[in-house]
């Protein structure tokens, strides 16, 4: 039986589909019996989605684009 700590260490690999089927089963079994870890796994899913969303927001940095383009005389 996995402890909650074991599950926390495996959460990311679980969400990435990188665990063996036996390990996956152990994680699923633990999640079905433990509300805390169920909530934790949900939070990890949300965290991963928010990290992706953050990339879009932090990408708005176009200050240098014209310098580069003028050097290469790109077509509009």
């Amino acid at each position: 039986m996995l402890s909650c700590r074991d599950l926390a260490h495996k959460a990311d690999a679980f969400l990435d589909g990188e665990l063996s089927s036996w390990k996956k089963l152990q994680v699923r079994l633990h999640l079905s019996m433990c509300n805390g870890c169920y909530a934790f796994m949900d939070q990890m899913r949300t965290t991963r989605q928010l990290v992706k969303a953050e990339a879009q927001v932090s990408a708005n940095n176009d200050t240098k684009i014209d310098d580069i383009l003028s050097e290469f005389h790109m077509k509009k």
Binding site: D6, C37, A39, T46, A53
Partner: peptide, 20 residues
Amino acid sequence: AFDGRGRWKDMPEIWDEITP
């Protein structure tokens, strides 16, 4: 985040405010 027996010190709860 865990005690000596591998249990959560602070049991996680579903987030209400933070959703994608």
